[in-house]
Amino acid sequence: MTTHELICIQCPLGCALTVTVDGDRVEVSGNTCPRGAEYGRKEVTAPTRTVTSTVAVTGGVLARLPVKTRTDVPKQSVFAVMQAVRAARVTAPVTIGQTIIENVAGTGVDLIATRSIEAQ
């Protein structure tokens, strides 16, 4: 059995959660609402994060294109995603929502542009 102490980030309250994991059983205490319980469970069993960064642009009015993973990705793949982002380069024009890297770092999630950039 393992115990995790977390701060819930679902609302400004910031409840101090205690999550205990015993095999398949996950118990959350310290939460004051169901969202807190859900957060605690997910944070301990399968934490995910949305990764945002920028990609170098060639021939655009801006030098960097802001990007994000379309949805959240497993927390442990964050640095792998960053590595792929750093290696990427796009050519303007770019349209907001455009896929920049498909299935980035094998997460099954696409990396997409979060703004449009016209060509210079």
Binding site: T50, T52, S53, T54, P66, V67, K68, I96, T114, R115, S116
Partner: peptide
């Protein structure tokens, strides 16, 4: 434009946007 992280727009658009997306 420089706030490329997400977390914007939960109240306004009921989804999590990045700064540039919110501005767009």
């Amino acid at each position: 434009n420089q706030c490329i992280h997400n977390g914007f727009g939960l109240h306004t658009f009921h989804e999590e946007l990045t700064g540039p997306e919110y501005a767009a």
